[in-house]
């Protein structure tokens, strides 16, 4: 039985735009991944708990309402506190360049801005998984 990459997609903050996240969810599914979509208006606590219970490899967070600077790093913090810091945390949405730089310093591994091709996201996740190899055991 093959190992399947599991990805949590979550929308933080108060915006209600779902088209982008749906496009990404379908692209990841078509790339053979299992995508858990947890819906809109998620808090960092909800995202961290969901990621833990679902034991996903990757957490993709999207924010279009400026919630990213507080919420994204908080998710990373919560995961580390609970011993689940081995997950890849990436972000996307409307995020200015200077914010991206700050997020990268706070444990968000990569920030995809508007207009990123889904193939680029898939390639990034696959490369990360391949690099991690069989070393994942905690």
């Amino acid at each position: 039985m093959a190992r399947r990459t599991r990805v949590l997609l979550a929308k933080l903050g108060l915006d209600a735009h779902t088209i982008g996240v749906n496009v990404i969810a379908q692209a990841l599914r078509d790339a053979g991944m299992e995508v858990i979509y947890s819906g809109l208006k998620q808090t960092p606590e909800m995202v961290a708990n969901t990621a833990i219970q679902e034991d996903v490899d990757v957490i993709g967070m999207s924010s279009l309402s400026a919630a990213h600077m507080t919420h994204f790093p908080r998710v990373v913090e919560l995961l580390r506190e609970r011993g689940a810091g081995d997950k890849l945390v990436i972000g996307g949405g409307v995020i200015p360049d200077e914010d991206s730089a700050a997020l990268l310093e706070k444990g968000i591994e990569r920030v995809f801005t508007m207009g990123t091709a889904t193939t680029e996201i898939i390639a990034y996740i696959e490369a990360w998984q391949a690099g991690r190899g069989a070393g994942r055991d905690t």
Binding site: A31, Y37, M46, T50
Partner: peptide, 24 residues
């Protein structure tokens, strides 16, 4: 593709921070 979109828990997310609930 062998992939899947798992969306059942969207309906249950209000329980996501309750330590007495585990959803998989």
């Amino acid at each position: 593709s062998g992939g899947a979109i798992l969306g059942d828990r969207i309906r249950m997310q209000r329980h996501a921070t309750d330590p007495g609930v585990f959803i998989r």
